[in-house]
């Protein structure tokens, strides 16, 4: 079945079964590497993309469900040679070990930045809770997100807020 998808602002026609998870279409049909298969169960966030500006697990989003909706992947935020602001923050903090989780982390964090309003360190932790990292890169990921939040002037406290 042929479907029209809007990915990173561009329209793509893909020929896929309507039940195919968006993840496989992004990766196998459109050659986009950012979203990763980690569990296929909505448990790890490696596959996170935005649909209509909200972070979702692309592994559990049938492609039929996103026709006519806006899909953004990490490729939409910048390219390896021209990193976007949040990606730059990750680069500056060297926030990756194996890096397999990182594209999903960036998409998750971008949703927080997009939400606007003041963002505390506790907000960052709570928000990132959805995504798993096995290498233990958490401290750097938090620093990178904090750096990006600071750059937008949205951070509320400079300490790790703990009640």
């Amino acid at each position: 079945m042929t479907m029209t998808l809007t990915i990173n602002g561009a329209e793509h026609r893909v020929d896929a079964e309507p039940d195919t998870p968006l993840l496989y279409v992004l990766r196998d049909d459109l050659g986009l590497n950012g979203a990763k298969y980690g569990c296929g169960l909505g448990q790890c966030g490696a596959c996170t993309v935005h649909v209509d500006g909200r972070p979702v697990f692309s592994c559990l989003t049938p492609v039929a469900a996103v026709q006519g909706r806006r899909v953004t992947t990490v490729e939409g935020l910048g390219s390896p040679g021209n990193l976007g602001p949040l990606q730059q923050a990750f680069e500056q903090e060297q926030a990756a070990q194996c890096g397999y989780c990182i594209a999903g982390m960036i998409m998750r964090a971008q949703a927080l930045l997009d939400r606007g309003g003041p963002i505390s360190d506790a907000d960052i932790r709570n928000h990132m809770q959805t995504n798993l990292c096995r290498c233990g890169t958490h401290m750097r990921i938090l620093r990178a997100v904090r750096r990006a939040v600071d750059a937008t002037g949205a951070r509320t406290s400079s300490l790790e807020a703990k009640p």
Partner: peptide, 21 residues
Amino acid sequence: LPRVDIPAKLAGGAAYIQDMR
């Protein structure tokens, strides 16, 4: 030195065996 492998990992460059086609 910034790690040479990181930029591709941040922006969907082909970085992993999983990305080979």
